[in-house]
Write a protein that binds this DNA or RNA. Structure first.
Lengths: 334, 334
DNA sequence: CTGAAAGCGCTTACAG
DNA sequence: CTGAAAGCGCTTACAG
């Protein structure tokens, strides 16, 4: 139907005006008569003309691409997080005329990100996870590529979009303490993830209040596999621990399995809670008390913030999104 | 350190040759003296020059971007599949100088894909899932965008990369029959997914041989949620079914839960197998008999095939990759 | 073997 | 309000 490769030049010729005029009609920049503008626009509409974004990009030194860097080595439990992030990001990106270029990086290999920036194929980037000593982050900082991170970072210069993990974990822990629990344990994962520190701090915060004074707490950090969890659970049971709080849902899954194998009833014999709420635990029986974050919103907000930066606006260094504590069947209600 | 925006023109001037020469030295196309070539190349090396891919693309009518379309509405269980696909794809893409542009589409909304193609931002596309009446597929076909699908499609014109699900399912089913099972059931999911049909056919194939003659089989299709599974399991248990085969791991998870709730021992009282092998079942106890596919290889192969097409090579309409049947603890060995 | 020139499809001072 | 011209950074016939 429509001419496959209509250009600004074709239209100019057809309408007997200059390419400049066509360009202005499209972009809306520069003075142009209302009549000519309408004429151009309706011609464009009718002939289904679409400007060549690549050419425009070349002229404007822009690509209209956003780089999203995804860890290539994440585990199954984290997957839904990245999926939802991506959904949020790609929605606002495409609504604003941008596309998403993917780079998968691992701790050792950040070459995909480097390609994309040295080839100047992106205008900015979004990091969907940050480690304590994050290579992609350093790289982008050094190359002066505008970027935001989803999560938190120590560096003052980086723009961060995160949920308020610390408050969330404090609030959940407080609720548990208020329900009368006096012997509680926290099992945490990799301390090189910034979020781990925040969650831990939130947990500790809860004991600063009155409720916590009398509570006995144990903390296990850098627990990464099923085997370790088995050992810890064993120990905690022997110890008469009333509630096991897990920093993430992978650990929580391990704990639940360990309890199940030992025929320990949840929440009757021991209560369980998680500092995250992935769909992976959704169908668990009993349902587990945890904290819910709107991850898609996180992605959206990150993308909006990046776009604002690209347009030269000032943005907050740190925006904290909300959360929701969900008491479920794995803990006893007060 | 290096000049941020070195161009081909700068180098030409610096070296006292023409831009043409620089271009030829880089691309390797066209006759050029060995000496000048070396001279140019070493200058480039030394000054860390990187050609502007966008500009090159404009001149060559290429983008060096591949569009990968991901369903925006997949469920948790399928996630690892897409993750591994992406890994395979993005590895070969970046090794060959291409980047990956992501489009998330749903059954109703394919606008992200459309943007990317009408904006001419990709040279070709990879579909990571196909439905029976696939919109993105039709669209790409109509727009004459080169593409490959991961999975199968009825249309003769589409290039497909898939595992040999049919053989795999036949082989697994045969093994089960050979172990002496005589009352077997298949629980299947959405028939609008092409792969579902292939798996079912493989299952049926197994009964064509001698082993199957005497076996009693039941098939349940279009089972999509936990509740349905509960009912079916109930019925199958009453019926004395010896083995329940699930078409995918979501269903398998549901079946295992249903059995667990009823305190039915696997494999002692009823055996269970799955036609897929996601990491989601990895930590299940007992481990479940299933079929393993190398999904990352699938992604790689798809990307290689697409790149071959873009270079004008002839490619196979259908390439089937291998599989591996894994007998585990959820079935009794013969 | 090498170069001048036109072209890819847009944008944007500058001039009128 | 409108246009001619130069430019974005490359490639590629064409000529020599």
């Amino acid at each position: 139907m429509e001419d496959k490769n209509l250009t600004i030049g074709d239209i100019a010729e057809e309408l007997g005006v200059s390419k400049t005029t066509i360009s202005r009609a499209i972009s809306g920049k520069g003075r142009i008569g209302e009549k000519t503008r309408k004429r151009v626009l309706s011609y464009i509409e009718e002939h289904n003309y679409r400007p060549n974004v690549i050419a425009r990009g070349l002229a404007q030194h822009k690509t209209f691409n956003l780089g999203v860097v995804l860890p290539g080595d994440y585990n199954v439990v984290e997957l839904p997080f990245f999926q939802k992030c991506m959904l949020g990001i790609s929605r606002v990106a495409s609504a604003r005329g941008y596309d998403v270029l993917l780079s998968m990086v691992t701790a050792e290999n950040t070459s995909q990100l480097k390609r994309v920036v040295t080839n100047r194929k992106i205008d900015g980037a979004i990091l969907t996870r940050t480690l304590a000593n994050d290579k992609p982050m350093k790289y982008l900082l050094q190359k002066e590529v505008p970027f935001v991170v989803i999560g938190s970072a120590a560096d003052e210069r980086v723009i961060q979009i995160d949920n308020d993990h610390r408050s969330a974990c404090r609030e959940l822990t407080e609720k548990l303490l208020l329900s009368g629990i006096r012997k509680i344990a926290l099992i945490g994962s990799d301390e090189s993830h910034i979020v781990t520190g925040n969650r831990r701090r939130g947990f500790e915060d809860a004991f600063a209040g009155n409720g916590g004074r009398k509570a006995d707490r144990k903390v296990f950090m850098n627990v990464v596999d099923d085997v370790q969890v088995q050992g810890i659970v064993e120990q905690l049971l022997a110890d008469g621990t009333e509630c096991i709080v897990c920093m993430d849902d992978f650990l929580c899954g391990c704990v639940l399995n360990a309890l199940q194998m030992r025929q320990i009833a949840v929440p009757e014999q021991v209560q369980v809670a998680s500092f995250y709420d992935s769909t992976i635990l959704e169908y668990r029986n009993p349902s587990v008390t945890s904290i819910r974050f709107d991850v898609e919103e996180l992605g959206q907000k990150a993308c909006e913030t990046l776009l604002a930066m690209l347009e030269g606006e000032e943005v907050e260094r740190r925006t904290l999104l909300d959360y929701e504590v969900r008491m479920r069947d794995s803990t006893k209600q007060a």
